[in-house]
Design a protein around this nucleic acid. Structure first.
Lengths: 353, 353
DNA sequence: ATGAAAGCGCTAACAA
DNA sequence: TTGTTAGCGCTTTCAT
């Protein structure tokens, strides 16, 4: 299948030594303009492309950056991957992506695989692998953590200010007049899920509002989980006028649960998400949520990884959240007739579809 | 950052030659059970992992498979990527993914990059690169095309039966009683977009139904495009009771346009998509669509690539579509009072939100 | 069945 | 500034 051109051939054709060609390729040393021109013309004429495997072997760098993402088929992490790809686009480095599926063993395997592949750096997005393991790995290879704090690795973490974000959500809803809330949380093992939940409840508490424990459900950060959590909340029969979800995916699932029970959004219940995944702006109705500039976070992660490779210092990056108010939130409905909850919905609501 | 163990070290520790270790690693030749045991124990003790770059250089194979996907942040192609990753999971091969962004130059660049990286095979998903280029590339490296027919490369294409799929959609809607249709198509440059459109219109034609040209709009296969196309359709003021979209993403955009104009789905208009992207089952209402087993298609693509590498023959694979009937389709509304379109909607409909 | 030796294509001292 | 010379870690003849 057609032999590839080698550096040696280029050198011979140009009448110089291999080292000279190598130097020109890498800009390692000064070369006479004429020789450079000669070599470069040969390179284009022969359409020479250096063999990365050979470069890796000889140079001791693989020119690849390993990326561990929870899933490949998620809009959210997909955006981050796109950002990483873009940042690496005009560098000699290339991402190599593996999914961890939110499973410890898978993440561990992925890490092993990347190290076996001799990646020059790794970017860990989310994940549930122990901090110690990551810290340990970071001694072998530069590591950037995205969306999580790793103890002892603060400087190489890129995170979102979850607390500020949830405060914005809470204040927005309080400002609309809501006082009866339900909350769907992410999995307990995930750091940011806990951060968001506490931030939300604390902020409400500061305003003298409490939430019944039955109205706080776990949704595993998935659409399916959000759906079930919302059903569980509706099943309690307790009244609420706003349903806050710890991410957009769960909000999407919750939306379907509300639809099935004939609960209008935002007429009967206001709904909020978190992340501002692309499709959230297309929900029926478009979702009020908190934007994480996830593409930019991906960009940043890749840049930080490159900095680390350059031996440059990196510092912990905190992204500022931005509340995006769309059509899924509105003031709570006026009190209804007696015999039903004063406002919002209860499990008694009947489907209208 | 901690030196990696090499094959030579393993050989020394086990008191055998490097060749023997290599043979054991690759199962290339018979080795005494005792030596094998000895070497294997050293391997685990030292936690030895062969250096893929060195293997690639010496072996002439990079053990990587290049994948070109239109985008990284799409649920649809993400599923395919997940399938590819899974299929390669317990093989020595590894995917390396680049996005083409539906831009010819980007796709060409991606291809060049993969070839420069010496991938052993490439999987091309969709894309708009000329057939000739792909055919040409396939002479250098085994190539599998997904979701498109490449002239002269029929055997290595994996496609969906778009015609049968659209016939199912058309018959479903005709069966419900619909006679006034609108259609949102994908970009003209894309093969399957044209296939789907013609299949749909032909099937209607066979049943004596025609569609006004103004009610056929291009949506570029994107959510945004679907939104605008739906608006254009509503703006014509022409009556229709069913809106058929060439993919789910455009259906999602169209759904928002309908929502904004106060058109009920499926009360006023039935809506259909194509692909059965995961989130379509969570739309409000859940979307009637055609399932493409895209994860399985990814699996299949990777397996075919491996077959090609094995020198085994591959044949063109045609996936069968499956109509998924959900809640976005229903019989057309009963005729309304005079002065308005007999059924369905026109641009005169007023928002109810 | 096993070892010795010669590369794979490149980079990086070290000389000149 | 440029060339010569060793490798990088592995596979694969070719002997034995």
């Amino acid at each position: 299948m057609m032999e590839a051109v080698t550096l040696a051939q280029v050198a011979r054709e140009a009448g110089v030594s291999p080292s000279t060609v190598s130097r020109i390729l890498n800009g390692t040393a000064n070369v006479t303009p004429e020789k450079r021109a000669r070599v470069e013309s040969v390179i284009t004429r022969l359409n020479y492309r250096p063999n990365p495997q050979a470069q890796a072997l000889a140079g001791g760098r693989s020119l690849t950056i390993g990326v561990i993402t929870p899933t490949l088929n998620s809009t959210f992490y997909g955006e981050a991957l796109a950002g990483i790809e873009a940042a690496l686009n005009d560098t000699p480095y290339h991402p190599i992506v593996i999914s961890g599926q939110w499973r410890t063993e898978r993440e561990q395997e992925a890490l092993d695989l990347l190290l076996a592949r001799r990646v020059d750096a790794v970017i860990m997005m989310g994940g549930i692998l122990d901090d110690e393991i990551l810290t340990h790995v970071s001694r072998r290879v530069p590591l950037i953590a995205v969306g999580r704090d790793v103890r002892g690795l603060d400087h190489s973490c890129i995170v979102l200010d979850n607390i500020k974000a949830m405060q914005q959500v809470a204040r927005h809803l309080l400002g609309l007049g809501h006082r009866q809330f339900a909350y769907i949380s992410g999995a307990e093992r995930q750091q940011d899920a806990m951060e968001r939940r506490h931030a939300f409840l604390n902020c409400l508490g500061a305003h003298g509002v409490t939430v019944a424990p039955e109205l706080i459900q776990l949704g595993q950060y998935t659409e399916e989980g959000g759906l079930r959590a919302a059903e569980a909340i509706l099943d309690t029969g307790l009244p609420f006028t706003a349903l806050v979800c710890a991410n957009d995916q769960m909000a999407l699932g919750a939306r379907l649960a509300l639809y099935r029970r004939g609960v209008n959004v935002p007429g009967d219940v206001s709904l909020t998400g978190f992340d501002d995944v692309f499709t959230s702006s297309l929900m029926t109705p478009p979702l009020t949520t908190v934007r994480q500039a996830i593409y930019d976070i991906g960009l940043m992660a890749a840049r930080e990884a490159l900095n680390l490779l350059d031996g440059q210092p990196v510092v912990r990056q905190v992204f500022e959240p931005e509340l995006i108010i769309r059509e899924s939130t509105a003031p709570p409905a006026a009190p209804r007739r007696a015999g039903r909850a004063k406002r919002g919905v209860t499990a008694m609501s009947t489907p209208d579809g």
